[in-house]
Computed example of a mutant assay.
Amino acid sequence: AAQVQFPDWESSEDSEDYFSFYKTLNSQVIFDRGGIISYQTSSMDFKGGANSSTFYKNVNIDLKTGNVITEKDIFIPEYKKLLNTMLTDKIIAQNNVKTAEDLLEFGYWGIEDIAANNNFSIDDKGITYLFNQGEYSAPSLGTIKVPFTYSELYPILKDNSPISSFSGK
């Protein structure tokens, strides 16, 4: 069937893996201390060149309870608006620009409307949010990583949360 659709394939300049497609699933523990495990899964789809993508999902587990740690477990009830603003401001700072609109020329879009997505990892220094490629930017930019220290997040952290031993709150 490929010969009928692509009769001049051998004389073309295209690589042999042009028709290749594969999916790779990986998982790893990225942090395991103080009763907290931060676990990351990645799903990589190879469709040839620029059409390939990798999707990441982080899961954080409180080993004392066995429960998955969500934003609501570690942040005060009215956290969302402030955290979303902090995410926007951090991405602006990471790219050395002044406004979210300035990010458009880099391939970002909708950063001013970015929303916390429960896709974060925890470690002893802070929390890192991930936004998968294509979520708020051109796929060519890859995954957007937004790290916060506990001191940066302190105003919205809950007292006595599963991460209190790291955050000091």
Rank of each mutant, 00 (worst) to 15 (best):
S12E: 05
T65F: 12
G126T: 00
G34E: 02
G48Q: 07
D102M: 08
L103W: 08
K169F: 05
W109K: 13
R33D: 13
Y22H: 15
L141Y: 03
G66S: 07
T24V: 14
I111T: 10
Y154G: 04
D73T: 02
I127A: 01
L130Q: 08
I163L: 06
S20D: 15
Y150E: 04
P162G: 13
N95Y: 02
D17I: 00
T24C: 07
K64V: 00
I92N: 03
Y56A: 06
E112C: 00
K47S: 12
A100F: 10
T65E: 03
I37D: 08
A100Q: 13
F120L: 08
N119C: 14
A93F: 01
N132Q: 07
L153S: 07
L82C: 00
D73W: 02
M44Y: 14
Y129A: 02
T54F: 02
I76H: 09
Y154R: 12
K90W: 02
E71W: 02
L63W: 06
Q3D: 12
T65M: 10
S12D: 04
T88Y: 01
Y39S: 09
A100D: 14
K98H: 10
K80D: 10
S12L: 12
A138H: 14
E105C: 01
Y22K: 10
D62F: 14
N51H: 11
S53E: 10
W109I: 05
I156C: 01
S151L: 15
I144T: 13
S137K: 05
I69E: 01
N95R: 05
G66N: 06
T41L: 07
F19E: 04
F6H: 15
A50G: 10
F46N: 07
S137T: 10
I37V: 13
I114R: 06
N67G: 09
S27K: 14
P147L: 00
E71M: 11
S11R: 11
W109L: 04
F131Y: 12
A138Y: 12
K90F: 01
K169G: 00
A115R: 11
N84E: 01
D123C: 08
S52L: 03
I122H: 08
N118H: 05
G110M: 08
P77A: 07
Q133W: 11
L104Y: 06
Q28E: 15
I37P: 02
V146S: 00
T41I: 05
S52T: 05
S167V: 00
I163C: 08
S43D: 10
I144K: 01
D123Q: 09
G168P: 01
Y39L: 14
E152V: 03
N96A: 13
T70D: 02
K125Y: 13
F6I: 12
S167L: 02
K125H: 12
Q3W: 05
D113W: 06
T24A: 14
L83K: 00
P147I: 00
T149N: 08
L87H: 01
S15V: 08
G34V: 04
A100E: 14
E135Y: 07
S11L: 12
N95D: 03
D159Q: 11
E16H: 04
A1M: 11
F120E: 09
E152N: 00
V146D: 00
F148T: 06
E135F: 04
S161D: 03
A100L: 10
K64E: 05
D113E: 14
Q40I: 14
T143V: 15
N58S: 08
E135P: 06
G34Y: 03
Y108P: 04
I30F: 07
L87C: 03
I163M: 08
Q133M: 15
